[in-house]
């Protein structure tokens, strides 16, 4: 079968490549199907959602208006959305504000034992949050922080900081040493050195890192549901609150899920190429 590169073999290879292409499409569509189905179900009447799978139906926006409507006594969409928005935004800003100087101190002008420090940051990611939830809950309760946005901001910052330090450090390593030396010979202060020389080069990396922090914080459920069961709770908890034990809820739940996932999915789609770079290339160099 090792017949060399003669005509028919090339033809066979072309066919093989065509078939692989078809296979890629089929596999991808299967992979995406659950998401497609969820979005589709959000446009159905409950009767149509709670039956054998229906591809064709009269689409309606009623489920979307139902789930975004404020009902007294229940967690409202606008409230959960605002809580999520502020917790995610502020925690990501704080993470970046602390991680940028830290990454600088671990790569461009490294402290002694920078490796140990980096390991310490990463090792905190291995400690399961569940093992700390009890003291966190007690401390938060005693400090009067339960059911506030502040407690989530603090914990989301702690959750994302190690990853951000690690990723940013790798991006800073990509800044050519000569550029930094030139800037320090010119007597530029560290702050202006960062602003004018380093930041422009690492900007795509910053975006990828911030995006990843946003994804993890936006999707976080455990801390939100444990620490803020009453107030200050977030979108994942709101999605879960659409599950009801009475009556059909599949279409409503689908509409809620679609709304809840939309911001992060769109952001991820837009930034996917940067994410590839940010996650792997930077992380390995």
């Amino acid at each position: 079968m090792s017949g060399g590169n003669t005509g028919p073999v090339v033809g066979a290879r072309g066919l093989g490549s065509f078939l692989l292409g078809i296979a890629t499409w089929i596999i991808t569509l299967l992979f995406f199907f659950p998401v497609f189905w969820m979005v589709l179900n959000g446009f159905k009447e409950e009767v149509d959602a709670n039956t054998d799978p229906k591809l064709f139906f009269d689409p309606t926006l009623d489920r979307f208006s139902e789930v975004t409507e404020d009902t007294t006594g229940l967690l409202s969409f606008s409230e959960a959305f605002a809580n999520s928005f502020w917790s995610v935004l502020i925690s990501t800003i704080v993470v970046m504000a602390m991680a940028i100087p830290a990454a600088y101190a671990l790569s461009i002008r490294p402290v002694e034992k920078w490796r140990d420090v980096l390991f310490f940051f990463i090792s905190t990611k291995f400690l399961p949050i569940v093992a700390a939830i009890l003291p966190l809950w007690i401390i938060a309760r005693d400090a009067g922080l339960l059911n506030t946005r502040l407690v989530l901001i603090i914990l989301y910052t702690a959750m994302n900081l190690p990853l951000a330090v690690w990723m940013l450090r790798s991006f800073f390593n990509e800044v050519p040493k000569e550029l930094i030396e030139a800037a320090s010979i010119d007597g530029a202060k560290i702050s202006s050195q960062i602003r004018s020389v380093i930041l422009p080069i690492v900007a795509p990396g910053l975006a990828a890192t911030a995006l990843l922090c946003v994804i993890f914080a936006w999707n976080e459920f455990f801390l939100a549901v444990q620490l803020n069961p009453v107030d200050g709770t977030t979108v994942p908890v709101w999605v879960q609150s659409n599950v009801s034990s009475r009556g059909n809820f599949l279409a409503k739940l689908s509409a809620a899920s679609t709304l809840a996932t939309l911001p992060v999915v769109l952001a991820g789609w837009v930034a996917q190429k940067r994410m590839i770079r940010g996650l792997a290339m930077g992380a390995i160099k």
């Binding site: 991808t28 999707n219 459920f221």
Partner: peptide
């Protein structure tokens, strides 16, 4: 784009 979507979806959903 389609393939990365499941990673972006929140675990609860």
């Amino acid at each position: 784009t389609l393939l990365i979507t499941p990673f972006l979806i929140m675990p609860v959903v």
